[in-house]
Amino acid sequence: MNFENILFEENDHIAYITINRPSKLNALNKATINELHEAFVSAEEDSDIKVIILTGSGEKAFVAGADISEFADFSAEEGKRLAAEGQEKLFDLVENLSKPVIAAINGFALGGGLELAMAAHFRIASDNARMGLPEVSLGVIPGYGGTQRLPQLVGKGRAMEMIMTAGMIDARQALEYQLVNHVTTPEELIPLAEKIAGKILNNSSVAIGAAIKAVNSSFRNDVNGYEVEIEAFGQSFGTEDFKEGTSAFLSKRKANFPGK
């Protein structure tokens, strides 16, 4: 696939999606969001892809925020539509993919950039990363899920402080807050993501997709997460992956999951 604002590569069952606007610190504009939507949908539909690694190009930024010039003159109704369409097209899409998305934060992850990273299933960061939601300094609030996902990840008090101060935290503080799972050097960031992806690839993609759905359901007020888990657990018994996994375990061999 050819894109203007992102790079898309596939290797050994891993899709690499890289936001590629280094001159703009990889800021999210409408065109980039549309391309990311297309890339994630393509990766979801490709049976050969099992894990997705999301990062930014260059050494300075993962995504340094939204492209403010695109919406500086918006009306209230246009702003509401911007948030609703963006959440549906990209952020909610990423969160609910059946394939694991690892955000490899390689620099600034601010505003919409941090919101995109938080939509991923988990995050790792280079030690030069800086994260924050500076929207209130512009007279607006996070609109791509930041007020919802940040408290889920770091707790209400820390989220309130980050949002209200519009400040940044560094990678070590993000690790302390449990906003990221690991911190490493910039040179080791993608290798670490690949190492984790390799461990994921050893397991049933069908079961992983079901687990993602069950975990996500626990954060929805209109869904009983335990019931989702019970249903998904039962359905697992009817999959070819379950048959292969149990057979391999009993035969003391490595499983070769068909992904069905």
Results as ranks from 00 to 15, higher is better:
N2R: 12
N2V: 08
F3N: 09
N5C: 05
I6P: 01
F8A: 11
N11E: 14
D12G: 12
Y16G: 03
Y16K: 14
I19G: 04
K24N: 13
L25K: 12
N26A: 02
L28N: 06
L28R: 02
A31C: 07
H37C: 11
V41P: 10
V41Y: 09
D46V: 12
D46G: 00
S47E: 07
I49F: 02
K50P: 01
I52P: 11
L54G: 03
L54E: 09
T55D: 07
G56R: 11
S57W: 04
E59D: 12
A61C: 06
A64T: 01
A64N: 04
G65M: 02
I68Y: 10
D73T: 15
D73F: 11
F74S: 09
S75M: 07
E77F: 02
R81W: 12
L82M: 13
L82V: 03
A83V: 13
Q87D: 02
E88D: 15
K89T: 11
K89L: 03
K89M: 06
L90W: 00
F91W: 04
L93A: 03
E95M: 15
P100C: 05
N106D: 03
N106L: 04
F108R: 08
L114M: 15
L116S: 02
A119H: 11
F122T: 05
F122V: 11
I124A: 00
A125T: 13
A125E: 08
A125W: 01
N128W: 02
G132M: 12
P134G: 07
E135Q: 09
G139D: 10
V140K: 09
I141H: 05
G143F: 04
Y144G: 03
G145V: 04
G145R: 03
G145Y: 01
T147H: 11
T147Y: 08
Q148T: 07
L150E: 09
P151M: 00
Q152H: 08
G155H: 01
K156L: 14
G157E: 15
G157I: 15
G157A: 12
A159D: 00
M160Q: 14
M160P: 08
M160N: 15
M162Y: 02
I163N: 05
I163L: 06
M164C: 08
M164W: 06
T165K: 08
T165L: 13
R172K: 14
Q173H: 14
Q173W: 04
Q173T: 14
A174R: 01
Y177P: 04
Q178L: 04
V180R: 05
V183C: 02
T184S: 00
T185H: 07
T185A: 00
E188K: 15
A193H: 07
A193R: 00
E194G: 08
G198T: 01
I200M: 09
L201H: 00
S205F: 03
V206R: 13
A207I: 02
G209Q: 07
A210Y: 05
A211R: 13
I212S: 05
V215F: 09
N216G: 04
S217W: 02
S217K: 00
S218I: 01
R220T: 10
N224S: 14
G225K: 05
Y226W: 10
E229I: 07
E229F: 15
I230N: 08
E231G: 09
A232I: 11
G234R: 08
S236A: 10
F237Q: 14
D241H: 13
F242C: 12
K243T: 05
A248P: 02
A248I: 00
K252T: 15
R253Y: 09
R253L: 01
K254M: 11
A255M: 01
A255N: 08
F257C: 14
K260V: 03
